[in-house]
């Protein structure tokens, strides 16, 4: 399934909770302030990396660009645009938003 996270991990526990509750094989898409969870070398980076082999982490490109962090994200995170977001919602059988 697809999980979306729209909160900065430095403010809310949505990303950590999502990472802990997502089954193997999930797609996790960071959107809005959630894209701060993609930052390389952050306090949550290791937690994000630890699920990478099991699930795929995506970040919404327009949100990265808007926040000036597109070149600061860790390796292994796939960047998608809104069309890619739609594709992910189609490819996965349901969507859970970690608000």
């Amino acid at each position: 399934m697809l999980h979306t996270v729209n909160k900065s991990p430095f403010e809310k526990n949505s990303l950590v909770s999502c990472l802990e509750h997502a089954a193997d094989g999930s797609a996790i898409l960071l959107i809005e302030d959630g894209v701060y969870g993609a930052l390389n070398g952050s306090a949550v980076a290791d937690k994000v990396k630890s699920v990478m082999g099991k699930s795929t982490i995506y970040a919404l490109g327009p949100d990265l660009d808007a926040r000036g962090i597109a070149d600061k994200i860790m390796d292994g995170i796939k960047v998608v645009d809104y069309a890619g977001f739609v594709d992910l919602a189609c490819e996965n059988d349901k969507v859970q938003a970690w608000l």
Binding site: M1, H21, A22, A23, K94, V95, Q96, A97
Partner: peptide, 11 residues
């Protein structure tokens, strides 16, 4: 909880 979510149609 992970398994519970996976078995849903709508969340």
């Amino acid at each position: 909880i992970a398994a519970l979510m996976e078995e849903q149609d709508v969340v």
